[in-house]
Computed example of a mutant assay.
Amino acid sequence: MSTKFMSCVLAATATFCGMGQATAGIDATLWGIYSNDIKFSPKKVENAYLELEYMGQTGPIDWYGYFDAPKYFGGNDNINGVWDKEKNTSFMFMEHQPKLSLNRLTGKDLSIGPFKDWFIAADWILDAGNDVLTRQHTLYYGLGTSIDTHTKLGMNVNIFTRQQWENYGAANAYTSNDGGRLQVQFFYPIYRFSNGGSVNYFTFSNYDFGSKLGERTAGGTRTNEALVSTHIFSYQLQNFRAYTAARYFHNGSQFKDGAINNWGSGDFAQDSTGWGYYVGLGYKF
């Protein structure tokens, strides 16, 4: 199963994921990340992995995405990664979140009250596993807006519909418009040091709703809804980056918490609700 890593983990100073504040051009950061108690699978995942993240702006488009090499530095038995030779192995996980600013595209101020910029937004997720149980291909697409809070607090809201292709063998594979996602993001610059470093807080929450996966799955192991809320504190210099994050899952990846499942080696109770943790060190180049 996918570990589904950070979405918009760190953005420089007051820029993050299509809020219309990104600097021109595209930057890349190479990360080493450790995570534990991650509940995108019904069995808790520990993972130490390598990530290449990019972000920036070209014309009316805000770019954000990353490529992960799962279990690059190690992890527990509930995940198979880039160096493993088992049949069910994920060699790469990637996510890309382009946003097209309608304000910048048209050259007009399309703001309505506190809703300052409007976006055509997408979130494309691909897990490049080597069989049906380790592959995912999902596209979220819809509209987004940046909201002026009249404070240093930045806010962004996206509403998506979901196109599902492969999904680790789940019953909603190859389903058109299988529900939607509400995504809410906040960014707050906490402190800037005289050496140019800064401490920032960033949070984003994804609420998946309206899926038919729970109804299509026998045994009551899946749900139609799920919530993931991520809270990140970062420290950034010009090139050096570091962060720590806590992520709350409720029925992560639509696995019903506490339901009894069996993947061929005996019954187990699904553990898909609770907190997981991340730490990361990165270098921007």
Rank of each mutant, 00 (worst) to 15 (best):
A69T: 02
F233A: 10
Y141L: 12
N47R: 05
G129R: 15
K108Y: 13
M19P: 00
T175P: 08
N177I: 11
N177M: 14
Q236W: 00
C8R: 09
K4R: 09
I120Q: 08
D77S: 14
Y49D: 00
Y235L: 14
Q163G: 09
Y207I: 05
Q164L: 13
E215C: 00
F255T: 06
N206W: 06
N177P: 07
K108M: 15
L213E: 15
A22V: 05
T161L: 12
Y235C: 05
W124H: 13
G210D: 07
L110Y: 12
C17Y: 09
T145P: 12
I61D: 02
D127K: 10
Q183G: 03
K212S: 11
S41M: 00
C8S: 13
H150E: 15
S111Y: 12
A245C: 06
L237W: 09
G154A: 11
Y64M: 04
N177H: 14
Y248N: 03
R241N: 14
R216C: 00
D178C: 06
G276L: 07
E225F: 01
L227A: 05
T3Q: 10
R222Y: 01
I79R: 08
I61Q: 01
F202H: 12
D148R: 05
G282A: 05
F93K: 10
W63T: 00
N206D: 13
I120R: 07
M6G: 13
D131R: 12
L213I: 13
R162P: 07
S272I: 06
G18P: 03
K43F: 01
Y201G: 05
A170E: 13
M6C: 01
T134Y: 07
T13M: 01
D117P: 06
Q21F: 04
N206Q: 08
D148M: 09
V279H: 01
N206S: 07
Q163W: 11
S205I: 09
M1C: 04
N167M: 14
P189Y: 06
M55C: 00
F193W: 06
G65H: 05
F249D: 03
V132L: 10
F240W: 11
G56M: 06
Q270Y: 01
T223C: 03
S90V: 15
N36L: 00
L133G: 10
Q163C: 04
N262R: 05
L110E: 13
G169A: 13
Y168H: 14
A245R: 06
F209E: 00
G81C: 08
Q136V: 09
Q270C: 07
G25Q: 07
G197P: 02
G264W: 05
G219F: 05
A171R: 13
Q236R: 01
Q164M: 15
D257L: 03
R135Q: 15
W63M: 02
G266N: 03
S229D: 05
K87L: 09
G220P: 01
G144K: 08
L133F: 14
G75M: 08
M94Y: 08
Q236V: 07
G274Y: 05
K87F: 05
E95K: 09
D27V: 06
W275Q: 02
A128T: 08
E46I: 04
Q57W: 00
H150V: 08
S176K: 10
Y140E: 14
S90R: 10
F119E: 12
M19L: 09
